[in-house]
Amino acid sequence: MDTMLWPLKVVVAWVMVYIHKALTFIGMPDGPGVAWVLSIIGLTMVVRLLIMPLFVKQIRASRGMQLMQPELQALQAKYKDKKDPASRQKMQEETMALYAKHGTNPFSSCLPLLVQMPVFFALFRVLASLEAVAQGTYANHDSIGPLTAQLAADVQASSVFGAPLSASFMNSDDMTTKVVTVVMIIIMSATQWYTMAQLSMKNMPESAKNSDNPMMRSQRMMMTIMPIFFAFTGVQFQIGVLVYWVTTNLWTMGQQFFTIRNMPAPGSEAEKKHRARVNARRAAKGLPTLEEEEAAQRAAELAEQAGQRRQRVQPVRKDRQKRKAGSAVPTAPEEQREDEVGGVVEGFTADEEAAIEEIETNIVGLTPEEIARRRYEKRARQRQQRKNSSKKRRR
């Protein structure tokens, strides 16, 4: 394993050593001490910055998975009783098409964790090799990159609350080390649970929280399994590795808090709180709320669509009307009204009439009496236009 991880171990050692040099350059004490603990924290921050694009991809994939859940459940219900190979194949194809439509896949949310695992194991092996490097008995190497025997001895002598960085619960008889290990495992498990909880509960639409949702079931299962896994395996990790993992969990927790607060998933509890905060800021500036602005935009779109429908057409001669009437291609209802009236088209569908009434009531602010009067005047103009058109045809 050391042979496979050797290039990564050199990189980990290089980052730790040069962060330590930077810390001593700004005035922290050289040799064993807190600077080496901070170098492991610095290593964590470097790794997290490098995988930032993967975190953004993870958030987008998680959001896409949440938004596609209603469609995925409908697809599963569609093929629920179809067990033949053709139906299974068709369901698989439609599922993949659904993933492509929402720009996500089931494995994107695991990418940051998977990328960190090699670094995690490399740090584990670097800390495990400190004693051999310090004594000059480390395999065929005198050092791990820039981590020389003297520096390895300094790291080995550094501690967190009295627990050496290279010590673990299982290989130490020191009670201080055991207590510090247990406390850090508890912190590590709690932060791991919270990061998963805030992603699946606060940033998930209510429609996706159904217990029948496979994604919701898997999230709840992971929220239970992962802390238990770390609790049982953490006793094997050195204090330095636990420092790394607690730091990365705290980083993830803060990163997710910022993302959920400012870029929540549509329909989630976090989005409601986000809109409330934005509306409060807009109200303080004298601006309309987000809902009012969106309603105004919808009103403008409906008004534009209505304007496109109101178009003047030329009167149609009777011989052309007869030819159109005898044509094999049926005439659309709107075209029929234009032929009969020969003037301005004023007809709307029932949905459009309802939308216009909603705009006049909620956006323009007209009373029911004013709406009724405007509607009466419009119909009077239509009747007058029909009379004028009939007179022209008789002439």
Rank of each mutant, 00 (worst) to 15 (best):
A77V: 00
A306R: 09
P227D: 00
K272R: 11
R386S: 04
T177G: 04
A149L: 10
Q385M: 14
D351G: 09
P146R: 07
E369D: 10
R393Q: 10
S172P: 08
G27S: 09
A153Y: 00
R320W: 01
V179I: 15
A208Q: 12
Q385K: 10
G347H: 10
F169I: 09
L123D: 03
W245Q: 12
K90G: 04
K273E: 13
T252F: 05
A355D: 06
E304H: 13
I144K: 01
Q314N: 06
A231L: 07
K80N: 00
K57M: 12
L8G: 01
N279I: 05
A380N: 02
L111W: 15
G326W: 09
S158A: 06
E93F: 04
A128L: 05
D319E: 09
A355I: 03
P7Q: 06
F348C: 09
Q73V: 11
M117R: 01
A306F: 07
A100P: 08
V180Y: 01
G234R: 02
L75T: 06
M223V: 11
G342F: 12
Q321I: 09
M196T: 11
E357C: 04
R60T: 07
R323A: 12
W36M: 10
T44F: 01
R63Q: 11
Q297T: 08
M65E: 10
G347S: 08
M263K: 15
A276C: 02
R312L: 11
M16T: 04
R310I: 11
L5E: 07
L290Q: 07
P330K: 12
G343L: 13
Y79K: 11
K57E: 10
Q135K: 15
Y376R: 06
L43M: 14
I26Q: 06
N203T: 11
T191N: 01
I41P: 06
G347T: 09
L111A: 15
K324N: 09
F229C: 10
N249W: 07
A157D: 08
A13V: 01
A328C: 01
L250R: 04
A61S: 13
V341G: 12
R48E: 07
D81Y: 07
K285I: 08
V329Q: 14
A97N: 14
A284S: 13
V37F: 13
V34T: 14
L8N: 00
M216L: 02
M170E: 08
V341D: 14
F230W: 03
P53R: 05
L242R: 01
M196L: 13
D339M: 12
S389T: 02
L38A: 11
A280N: 07
A303Q: 13
M215S: 14
E292W: 01
V15W: 03
R317P: 14
M226A: 08
R312I: 06
S189K: 00
A283P: 02
N203K: 03
R373C: 00
Q58C: 05
D319C: 02
E301N: 12
M226R: 00
S109I: 14
G365P: 11
K90W: 05
R323D: 09
P315F: 11
T247I: 12
I144V: 08
R310A: 02
V344Y: 02
N362G: 01
Q308P: 03
L130V: 15
N213D: 10
T224S: 10
E131W: 04
I41S: 04
V313T: 13
T181V: 14
Q116M: 15
R320V: 05
I359V: 14
A295K: 15
A265Q: 12
E292R: 02
D2G: 11
R281T: 11
